[in-house]
Amino acid sequence: MTPRDPTERDVELLESHETDIFAGFEGDIPGEPGRLETWIRAYGPAAAAFVVVLALWEILTRALDIETFLLPKPSEILDRFITNAPIIWGHGFRTLVEALGGFVIGGTLAVAMAFATVRWAAIREGLLPFAIAANTMPIIALAPIANNWFNVTSPLSKMAVVSVIVFFPVMINTTRGLFEVDPGELDLLRSMAATPREVLRHVRIPNALPYFFSALKVASTLSIIGAIVAEYFGGPQDVLGQYILNRANLFQFPDAWAAILVASILGIAFYVLIVLVERLAMPWHVSLRATEGG
């Protein structure tokens, strides 16, 4: 019911990008207490439901004798996941390299741009509306031109797309973190005659870290998805996206699902990795949460 600045809502829009399966539920607001506990409470029933659905799926496909090309059984998918492991994990590795490359490039550029906004306010004024507009367009449409520009066979063409996908949420969130500081803290540092550099180091950067990591978590899953979708637009065959598409076109859905399983595992692993780095980078924040969560 509280009126809000429309820009702020658009920023929120950037954050709660729905393709991030983790951030969609109950938001990933920095400083929210008891995250782990919330996780278990939020996903515990879901995990249980997932197992039940899998069991039902298996039983029903067997009982109703549904053909594999219509709906594969979970056991078949698992079978392919194991027997095809060397192939699909090899594909997964190449997709992961594309995702990681794009993640690093896009993330680095985003952070550099966020710092530039602190130094030059004009950049912030100009870039924010652009970022909001950019977020409403299907960035994935850039994949074919990236193929033409960076050579369709080179992983660089996929990294380019991923880096654009990663850039906007990270840039927006980091900028927000650098700016949404406690005015009291700013006054305090001003009273100590701190230089802008010191303000940046002691107030803005520590304040931005939770925002930054929040965006990195969104970007981690997005980068895997982005890499796979970019692969659909053409390129080498030994990657997850092409594998899924080819197998689907041959109606070999268990193979395709096994590859999707690999993609999901990679996405979750990447996300968890970021969470671990976050804990190492700002232990104070976690401990604060623990006492607050009570």
Binding site: I224, I225, V229, I244, L245, A248, A256, I260, A263
Partner: peptide
């Protein structure tokens, strides 16, 4: 991740 598997 439905976007990733939309073609399938």
């Amino acid at each position: 991740p439905i976007i990733a598997i939309a073609p399938m």
